[in-house]
Amino acid sequence: MRRLLSINPWLYLLFFVLLLGAVLGQQYRLFERAWFSVQEWQHGAQWRDQSLWLGDYRVVIEAKPIADISDVSALTYDPDRRSLFSVTNKPAKVIEISLQGELKRTIDLEGFGDPEAIEYVAPGTYVIADEREQRLVKVRIDDATRALDAADFQQLSLGIGRNGNKGFEGLAYDAKNQRLLVAKERDPVRIFEVLGFPHVDESKPLALQVNTDPKRDARLFVRDLSSLDFDTATGHLLALSDESRLVIELNAEGKPISTLSLLRGQHGLQRSVPQAEGVATDDDGNLYLISEPNLFYVFRKQGD
């Protein structure tokens, strides 16, 4: 009897460790991530030639400060200007950055409460997401633009699953299908598909449709979403998670097929990316990333 009693504390400890491991595994999506690693290993040869295949990417510019800018959020590539655009919210600005991470100009934002994302949709046309108000604003930017007032532009408010400062955090645009993909940060993680905005053809009536894909969202083994990017060449979507320090490539069916870890020692990184906020790819397949407060990264496919 005494021997059984003496064993009980160890049984309790083992039970506690197992319970804690299960809770942490669920919270950090470790089980789903481990299962994906098995699938990636099994199907790597098949998937590599049909995707960006993020595992082959290596950092070539790491943690380069962007002038005296701070609080950067989101990233998009403009193929016409061959430059990158981002937003800051303290103060609210749009910033244009070269492909080498040099600040080219800043544009003041007026009437935006909490700008968190910007996305190129057509020559000179962008959409800016206002996080807390869950508002999308279509704006025009040219060489002469120095300020943008939200009141001057087409807007769309979507009160979907309002949850304080856990609103719209990322944007991506699929030009072929004219759909805007909108990321909800967390609680829960969601990617909405918006059809009909921005309203491109003013001669036709506005026909708005908002779709979701719960199965795809359930496959996202990340704790949050910070940014999105749509790769036209492959038709694949990139989803960036700050808390999970991970970029996931999703195929056209919404299934994860490759990942890029933002942890120290992975993909040539000397240090972990501190707070990843934006991801974008260019026409040559180069991957750009920004992190708060103002750090700039470039990843290039090995051998390219």
Results as ranks from 00 to 15, higher is better:
L4G: 15
L5P: 09
S6P: 04
S6V: 12
A22Y: 07
Q27G: 12
W35H: 14
S37G: 14
A45N: 15
Q50W: 09
G55P: 07
V60K: 04
I61D: 00
K64W: 03
A67M: 03
S70K: 04
S70D: 01
V72W: 07
T76K: 15
L84G: 07
N89H: 14
N89M: 14
K93G: 02
K93Q: 15
E96R: 14
I97F: 10
E102D: 12
K104I: 13
T106E: 14
D108T: 12
E110Y: 07
G111Q: 04
E119H: 03
V121E: 08
A122R: 03
P123R: 06
T125V: 09
I128S: 05
E131H: 08
R132I: 03
Q134S: 13
Q134D: 08
R135L: 11
R140N: 12
D149N: 14
D149Q: 10
A150F: 08
A150Q: 08
Q154D: 12
Q155V: 01
Q155N: 10
S157M: 15
I160R: 06
I160F: 11
N163L: 10
G167L: 00
F168A: 12
K176D: 13
Q178I: 02
L181I: 02
K184E: 03
D187Y: 10
F197R: 04
F197T: 01
F197I: 02
D201T: 07
D201C: 02
K204C: 08
P205V: 11
L206Y: 00
A207Y: 13
N211K: 11
R216Y: 06
F221M: 12
V222K: 05
R223H: 08
S227E: 05
F230G: 11
D231K: 05
A233G: 07
G235Y: 09
L237T: 10
S241K: 05
S241P: 06
S244H: 08
R245W: 05
R245M: 08
L246E: 06
A252F: 02
K255V: 15
K255M: 15
I257R: 05
S258Q: 02
L260P: 03
L262M: 14
H267L: 02
T281P: 13
D282F: 05
D283C: 02
K301P: 07
